[in-house]
Amino acid sequence: MDTARESLKVPKEGSEYVSRLTVPPHRANVGQSFYESFTLKGIRVDTVEPGFLSCTFKVPLRLTTANGELSSGAIASLVDEIGYAVVHVEGQPMSVSVDMSISFLSTAKVNDELEISSRALGQRGRYSGTAVLLRNKSTGEVIAEGRHSLFSVLASKI
């Protein structure tokens, strides 16, 4: 138990870094939230086709562990956001994640360039499924593969 507790301790530098962050309140339907901009900042969209999205992402220090590797939480956030982006329809209510499954196969280091692709697997009623693949652009090594299920609420006619 002590080992686990020790590994979860935030180093003083990390604590100071987090305390300097400015987090303005987010208003619904007005720009990105802090969470979205923190995770997605620096992503370059390369290809957008119906049911497919491909982008490039250079791993920033802010999304890494103390060892300089892309954190599993950051990978999950990317699967969530990029998986959602491929099924989002402008003007329609946002979908919510109902299930994610991620296979963590390798690691990425600070400044590694990743290629992230997402494709729609299908839709049944108000449920959609997507697959997201994170790959090291220079080596071709698969970092993670995720499946993402989303549920959309129909717009109210009131």
Rank of each mutant, 00 (worst) to 15 (best):
S149G: 12
I158S: 15
R27L: 07
I102E: 04
V45R: 07
V142N: 10
S7E: 02
S15I: 02
S19D: 11
T22C: 04
T47F: 00
L150H: 03
D80H: 10
V142L: 13
L121C: 00
A155E: 13
P24Q: 05
V89G: 13
I75Q: 14
L78V: 10
S72T: 10
L114E: 11
P24F: 02
R126A: 08
L78G: 06
I158G: 11
T130N: 07
A28F: 07
F52V: 03
E141N: 08
D80C: 09
V10N: 09
T107P: 01
E90Y: 11
Q92G: 00
K9C: 01
L105Q: 12
I116K: 07
L133W: 08
E16D: 12
F52L: 13
F151R: 05
G129L: 01
G68R: 11
T3P: 04
L8N: 04
S77K: 11
K41M: 11
S101L: 04
G73L: 14
P93E: 14
I158Q: 14
S33C: 05
S7I: 01
V96Y: 09
S19I: 02
V10W: 05
M1P: 00
G68N: 14
S118M: 05
L78R: 09
V10L: 15
S152K: 08
K12H: 06
